[in-house]
Simulated assay, not measured.
Amino acid sequence: MFLQTLPFLVQSRILSFLGFEHQSLDSGEERVDEEFGSIPDCLKDAASSANELFLPWLPLSHDTLNSRELFAGYESQEDFLSQVGEGSGDNSKDVAEEMEIDLVMVAPLDEEIQNMAASLKERIMTFESSSLTVELANEIRRLSFERDADPFVILGMLEPWKADDETASILVFHLSNGREEEEEIAWPSKVLCSIMLPKMLVLEEPASRVLVISMVEYCKLHQRAAECALLLPLIMKKSGINNHMCDVITRIVKESLHPAHVSAFCRKLLCGEEVEKRSIILPCHQCLLSSQLVWTESLFNLFQNILNHNVQLTQDSVDQLVLLIREVAPSFSKSLKFGNFLLCFITRCSLLLKSRKLLLVEAVAKTNTLVTKSILSKLASF
């Protein structure tokens, strides 16, 4: 027996909670009678007609509460609990927004919407002409906004990141002509994280010219979306960025963003709390991200490129980098890329590093590269 006294989306979340916390909530009929006088007749009748009830006061069976449908969108109960735990430090607005996404994700889509999405997905995989791709983008936008379904869910079903680079470059621009009343950052972010970001997360060779140009131009128009739906999640990749990813990010930083914006972004990466580093990303790609920066030679190279672009780092960003350098210097002791970053860092940020001289000397002394002596000489001049 399944009672639905609340809207489906709300009831789904409540039942998920009950499924996880049933042991602490299983008070038994005696305690209910003791504290509340008696069990309501409607629940007594329902309970007496149900078999093997999970909770004496809730007419749901073990099979119902353990079913995969109850935890739709999660591989296991542990996955659900871990995702709830990750958001425990957010403010109420962030939690509300996250819950709203989760609730929409578990809602079943209308069969007509599913059929339309399947048809559009098939067309995404086949490039015929630019004009037909533009029309395809228009249809995707209409399906995302004119139907009773979350655009994030629709884009996840369509898997537009699997399109070839030419199709992706056309889609990303023509999908952006959505409703003006849509929140400024929301739709462009969804477009970026469902088309460009997945391609970048698996990049193992130089990105195609058409893809890079389209990303650079798109990020010029949507800088906030570029930060939270492309740059941030890419840099937070669980296995760390490689040289090809570094090249793309460097190009976007130099051609699409203002230096002051880049400085603020670096501060978020280096000094921000975990909640500040939350990305806009499809659930199916969330497993590729880390909650902490993964330092690789390519990431140090990226920061060197940023400094060479005359980006002025804040004092707290510089201080955090010094502490990091001291920590990782033994691991990168023979890395020339790390050494080049150190030389660039000390040269570009010398005015902010005078009080950190001894720490830097200690860290540099643990390296042995072609530029180690040059770095120590530079530090001696402070």
Rank of each mutant, 00 (worst) to 15 (best):
E297N: 13
D94W: 09
S24W: 08
F152S: 07
F341G: 00
S333L: 03
S144I: 03
Q23V: 11
V153S: 02
R179E: 13
V191H: 07
Q320D: 08
V202A: 10
H285Y: 15
A96E: 10
P7V: 02
W295C: 05
I235P: 05
L351R: 13
N301T: 06
L171R: 03
S335H: 05
V106M: 10
L323F: 13
R123K: 14
N340M: 07
L379V: 12
R224W: 13
L143W: 05
D63K: 12
E276W: 04
V216S: 05
E30F: 12
T126L: 12
K334Y: 09
K44M: 11
S189E: 04
G156R: 14
A107N: 04
E362C: 06
L3K: 03
D316G: 01
A260E: 07
L55Q: 01
F80Y: 15
E297D: 15
V210T: 14
S131H: 03
E159K: 15
E184C: 01
H309M: 06
K373M: 04
P40H: 08
A168V: 14
G85K: 12
R68W: 01
T5S: 11
R278I: 12
H174F: 14
V216N: 06
C271S: 12
E30M: 08
M196R: 04
W161E: 12
R224H: 13
H261R: 14
D90E: 14
P7C: 02
P233I: 08
L171M: 07
I281F: 09
S119V: 01
M196G: 02
P7W: 02
F345C: 01
R141C: 10
L342M: 13
H261F: 15
F303G: 05
A96H: 11
A226I: 09
L299N: 09
G339K: 08
L324E: 15
I213N: 11
G85V: 02
M200L: 15
A229R: 14
I170E: 05
A117K: 06
A96G: 10
I170D: 02
I140D: 02
G37I: 03
L234T: 10
E30N: 06
E204R: 11
A207Y: 08
Q77V: 09
T167I: 08
K334W: 03
K378T: 12
Q114C: 01
L342K: 04
F300Q: 03
T314K: 09
I235E: 03
P56S: 11
D41S: 09
V253M: 15
P7N: 06
R68Q: 07
E273Y: 04
F152G: 08
W295T: 02
V172Y: 06
L109P: 01
S333C: 08
I252Q: 07
K162N: 15
S49E: 10
N51Q: 13
E297W: 06
